[in-house]
């Protein structure tokens, strides 16, 4: 446990002291090894409010809703520890026009940003399925960002019977 805390502190110190160098190193590492892509954790995962999480991921809080973003989640989830969610975004997924990133948030979770997915044209479809934890009844929100910077969102409310943060 101590070891982990130390490492996090070291990480923070290094990042703060030499953000640019760390950024370059991360970039070099990303280029060097596809397997290790995006190991650097995004600070947005530590955001404590939806507004902060949105600001740190997409730079603004009001992303227009779009029918191109299809967010599927149950209207009622008996178990908040395992809520099945899927997101699919309409996109040609060509080198010129594709969905680059999809962010998934749970508005009322203590840390609202749940995940971010980075796609490539080789993905064929901007789509993922996973199970998430929800602490309370809340909106689940997906925001898609295309390679051209276009932002689109979808929101669904999920009623949670038993909290997933026991």
């Amino acid at each position: 446990m101590t070891r982990v805390k130390m490492r996090r502190r070291d990480f923070l110190r290094i990042t703060l002291a030499a953000g640019a160098t760390a950024g370059l190193a991360a970039f070099a590492r990303r280029r060097a090894c596809a397997d290790n892509a995006a190991v650097q954790p995004s600070q947005a995962f530590e955001a404590r409010t939806l507004a902060d999480a949105l600001r740190q991921t997409v730079g603004k809080g009001d992303v227009p809703l779009s029918a191109r973003v299809k967010l599927k989640a149950p209207a009622t989830a008996e178990n908040g520890a395992e809520v099945p969610v899927s997101v699919e975004v309409d996109s040609p997924m060509t080198a010129d026009d594709y969905v680059k990133t999809v962010y998934l948030y749970v508005d009322k979770n203590p840390k609202p940003l749940a995940s971010e997915f980075h796609f490539t044209p080789a993905s064929g479809r901007a789509y993922f399925r996973l199970r998430i934890k929800m602490g309370d009844t809340s909106n689940v929100r997906a925001v898609a960002k295309t390679n051209k910077g276009l932002l689109m969102a979808a929101v669904r409310e999920v009623r949670v019977t038993i909290s997933g943060c026991g």
Partner: peptide, 20 residues
Amino acid sequence: MTAQWGIAVSTNPFLGFTMR
């Protein structure tokens, strides 16, 4: 495809995605 996850992903995480 690369995914970054926070603490809100369920225990024994399942993931579905596609490729062409």
